[in-house]
């Protein structure tokens, strides 16, 4: 089927591009808290950002380099999740369109035949978002079934580690290759 190979190739993009994978995990940690509110209120914001990112990917990535932008967003989302927990839903919601914009711009494939572009693009979008399901599900289930305190601390620490890692990778990208 035309474009089917592209779906598989696109699906692997988040694995090959750590910045996309990290942003997806940061997004999961951000919306995994206070899940019902953040999903119902945040989904339209995120999807609007994602659509804008897909539509404006070419001019956007010409002005803003994709990898540093994704890492900066991952660091910001991780830090917000670590420091505010589930208490800053408006701030988290405000960040969602930006994350969607970055994710959309990163998932648009290089120019090529329409079927291949569609397949690769859909695969990349699916690959980048599939990680959200287990993450959000696990967080929600943990909050429901386990004592809230330790789950909250665990998620905050995971988010702070992710933010720290994203920040260091951002510095490495900005510093450029060694030698």
């Amino acid at each position: 089927m035309p474009g089917l190979d592209g779906v598989y190739a696109g699906f692997a993009v988040p694995l090959a591009e750590p910045a996309i994978g990290m942003l997806a995990v940061a997004l999961g940690l951000l919306i995994g808290r206070d899940l019902p509110h953040r999903v119902t209120q945040g989904a339209p914001l995120y999807l609007a950002g994602l659509a804008a990112g897909l539509l404006a990917a070419r001019p956007l990535t010409a002005v803003v380099p994709t990898e540093p932008a994704l890492l900066a967003l991952a660091a910001l989302a991780g830090a917000l999740s670590a420091l505010t927990g589930d208490r800053a839903t408006p701030l988290a919601l405000g960040l969602l369109p930006m994350i969607g914009l970055g994710m959309g711009a990163a998932c648009l494939p290089d120019p090529g035949p329409a079927a291949a572009m569609l397949g690769t693009g859909l695969g990349a979008l699916a690959g980048a978002h599939i990680v959200l399901l287990p993450l959000c599900g696990a967080a929600d289930m943990a909050f429901e079934r386990l004592p809230r305190g330790p789950v909250d601390i665990g998620l905050r620490i995971a988010a702070s580690w992710l933010a720290a890692l994203a920040l260091l990778m951002l510095a490495l990208v900005l510093a450029g290759p060694v030698g």
Binding site: A75, A79, A82, L83, D152, I153, R156, I157, A159, S160, W161, A163, A164, L165, L167, L168, L170, A171, L172, L174, A175
Partner: peptide, 23 residues
């Protein structure tokens, strides 16, 4: 403080690390 200190430390440490990486 039990969770705040171990959360603050890696976040700020990464900022220091970024300064080191950037020279």
């Amino acid at each position: 403080a039990l969770w705040l200190l171990p959360v603050v430390f890696p976040l700020v440490m990464a900022m220091g690390g970024a300064l080191g990486v950037l020279g």
